[in-house]
């Protein structure tokens, strides 16, 4: 039925094969090309909200996690301009929330932090918002700290599409967005979320944490302490 991998796109001058139905991100990851991303996780339907994976396709900026790969696309990704924009987006994520790494159990395992390391972020640059956000410790096994939420919707997608529970949702718009919990009280402890749920595993930051795990792996021995997020995620792709 014809060669399955005969179609190609070009990323930064390199020819990348793809199958129909794959996005630029899918094709890139399969070919060991890292495009920085936060809201994307290959296990879930793409969301396209963090815009970190923005690439230039035939001169236009698009989110590579949602853009289907099409024969002959000329894609630019690892360029000074795009990485500068990714850095600015990451810095905005930092100042929009309350990301105080020294106080966070997720530090070293956090993808927001790891992307910032990868992009060489030396400071958050913009003025901090220090927004007022709620912490919800009502669940016996999980902690929801909205200070660290980046609205990637991974927990929303996991709970809805994998766990079939729809525990989480986003409410409000723009800077007024907030992560809400599907219970009458609005508290996580009044939902049927279990620590074994997929939704409990996917938070890229320290917004949704398992309780009593804090420092079982010490700082200095964590996922991104010695390996870049590029090496870690491309490694996972081939597991």
């Amino acid at each position: 039925m014809g060669a399955p991998m005969s179609k190609t796109i070009t990323i930064d001058g390199k020819s990348i094969p793809f199958k129909d139905g794959q996005t630029i991100m899918d094709a890139a990851m399969a070919a060991d090309v890292y495009i920085p991303h936060l809201c994307h996780n290959p296990e879930f339907k793409p969301h396209g909200s963090c815009k970190l994976c923005t690439v230039k396709v035939n001169g236009r900026n698009v989110a590579s996690c949602t853009m289907p790969a099409v024969e002959g696309q000329q894609v630019l990704s690892d360029t000074l301009e795009l990485n500068d924009e990714r850095l600015s987006l990451t810095q905005m994520l930092f100042v929009e929330g309350n990301h105080i790494c020294p106080s966070c159990e997720k530090s070293g395992n956090c993808q927001l932090q790891a992307v910032a390391y990868y992009l060489g972020m030396m400071s958050p640059h913009y003025n901090h918002f220090y927004p007022q956000r709620e912490v919800d410790a009502s669940h016996p096994d999980m902690l929801l700290d909205r200070n660290r939420c980046i609205y990637c919707e991974l927990c929303v997608r996991a709970s809805r599409d994998v766990d079939g529970k729809s525990v989480f949702g986003l409410s409000g718009r723009g800077i007024g967005s907030t992560l809400v919990v599907n219970s009458t009280s609005g508290l996580l402890g009044d939902t049927n979320l279990a620590a074994t749920d997929k939704a409990a595993q996917v938070c890229p930051t320290g917004a949704l944490l398992k309780k009593r795990q804090g420092f079982t792996v010490p700082i200095g021995q964590r996922i991104f302490d010695h390996r870049t997020i590029k090496d870690v995620q491309l490694g996972e792709e081939h597991e």
């Binding site: 309350n98 105080i100 020294p102 106080s103 400071s123 901090h128 220090y130 927004p131």
Partner: peptide, 12 residues
């Protein structure tokens, strides 16, 4: 010095 850090946890 760069983010406010731990002391900035009192900001809210």
């Amino acid at each position: 010095a760069i983010t406010g850090g731990i002391p900035a946890m009192r900001n809210n």
